[in-house]
Write a protein that binds this DNA or RNA. Structure first.
Lengths: 241, 241
DNA sequence: GATAACTTGCACAGCCATGTGCAAGTTAGT
DNA sequence: ACTAACTTGCACATGGCTGTGCAAGTTATC
């Protein structure tokens, strides 16, 4: 008695194609937030026309991306806490690193126009967490006090995105990338590199286990990312400059 | 005997209009590198058609912008040297801060596509200078050694752009902005915030005089930047679709 | 004040991207 | 195997931006 209502249930491959489209969009838009739907469809291995069978407009696709990205990130940050604001910040870095792909799509999309507000709300958990750690770290005398806290938090955020770019571009392995994101974040906050390195080294592996874990399920984007001739095709080296 | 060749010399206001266009382009493209020429013409107070009287294509206008920006920056960096790599890096920061507008236009344009190479070459003096200071600082044990020098230089560069954004956005005064750019650059390099602050404070004013100077001539873009109702006016939001 | 230089406004072509409709396929479920 | 679900390829309307031609203005310069 599956479904007596409709004459037939939706097909399973349709669902798969929908996923493929979202994944493709994630890959393509990370490189160019204004890419055409044709490009997305191509990356997904479908026709442009079929894409409209799943999303009735470009904006609807964007909305889906934003929603998913935001959810992934919130989830990842959900249980990141630590009494030492320095370690807290480092852990945020590690969590973010585990979600690079998502974060970078959001960051890219943020540059656009009308998405700003949506993206902002998607990233707000990160922002809040960073802000809390920053503020605590400044009070404790660890972080620089020569800048208003909001600006500092913003700087750390911006720097983090930059680091993600570099890390991805230079093809660091998981551990190295995570380490870089953590230490540079701390540096911008105000620590010297020796302090940052030492601090990060002192973090018990158990705290990082969640992300460094072997088969950390639910890795939506990873496949797409690996297969991304994307990064290679575009940037080559010019990158940001 | 001005010019016996042509029946009449070009008019002076034409030159002024050309300048206005370039300035407008600088303002508009800094916000949105893909803005239409209509937007540029409007910002310049001219018609789109008139614009084509000065630049035969969009690319020609871009080229002019790139060339000027590159020239300004090279010039600003020409006599930035110091034996202490930390101070060298800080001074680069100060020099860059004096050219924020230019740098930001270039950085924006860099995200585009076919411009990559041109932009890259325009910014190459900065890159080279940063790389030199970075490498020297690492050798001296001041900067972090846990990252390959090229990546570190890249990180510093990226961070600098981020700082410029924040600084401009939060409307810091000249001195504060310069200070921020210098210290955060040093932080990413690896110094603690106390070290960075102390170091920057120790830099004799004479070394900064060049930029902090009252009427440092040749400030091409400053007027345009100040007058930019740009940021406010444009966005509206409709944007794409 | 005559004349060339410059601007404007309009009309036009071309290109590219978005959405949509429809007829003909192909493929998954029952 | 039959049928509905899904995909494809095409055609089409719409809208934005570029680049150009031309006639009619305005303004600097001689």
């Amino acid at each position: 008695m599956t479904t007596t209502l409709s004459p037939r249930a939706p097909r399973r491959d349709a669902l798969e194609n929908r996923e493929a489209i979202v994944r493709a969009a994630s890959v393509v838009f990370r490189r160019d937030p204004e890419a055409s739907l044709d490009a997305v469809a191509a990356e997904a291995g479908l026709s442009r026309r079929a894409l409209y069978g799943h999303f009735s407009s470009r904006d609807e696709l964007l909305a889906e991306l934003l929603t998913r990205g935001g959810a992934r990130i919130s989830e990842a940050l959900a249980d990141v806490h630590h009494d030492d604001p320095r370690i807290h910040l480092a852990l945020i870095g590690a969590a973010i690193w585990a979600e690079v792909q998502q974060v970078r799509v959001l960051a890219q999309l943020a540059l656009h126009g009308p998405l700003e507000k949506t993206v902002a709300s998607a990233l707000s958990p990160v922002r809040a967490s960073v802000r809390r750690a920053t503020s605590a770290g400044v009070s404790a005398g660890y972080f620089r006090e020569s800048v208003p806290v909001e600006s500092l938090a913003q700087l750390i955020e911006d720097a983090a995105i930059g680091v993600l770019d570099v890390a991805v571009r230079t093809d660091l392995d998981e551990a190295a990338g995570r380490q870089l994101v953590m230490t540079v974040g701390l540096s911008v906050a105000g620590l010297s590199w020796r302090e940052a390195d030492a601090l990060v080294a002192s973090i018990p592996g158990s705290l990082l286990a969640a992300w460094s874990a072997p088969g950390s399920g639910a890795v939506v984007g990873s496949g797409a990312v690996a297969g991304s001739g994307a990064v290679a095709g575009s940037g080559s080296e010019g990158g940001r400059s």
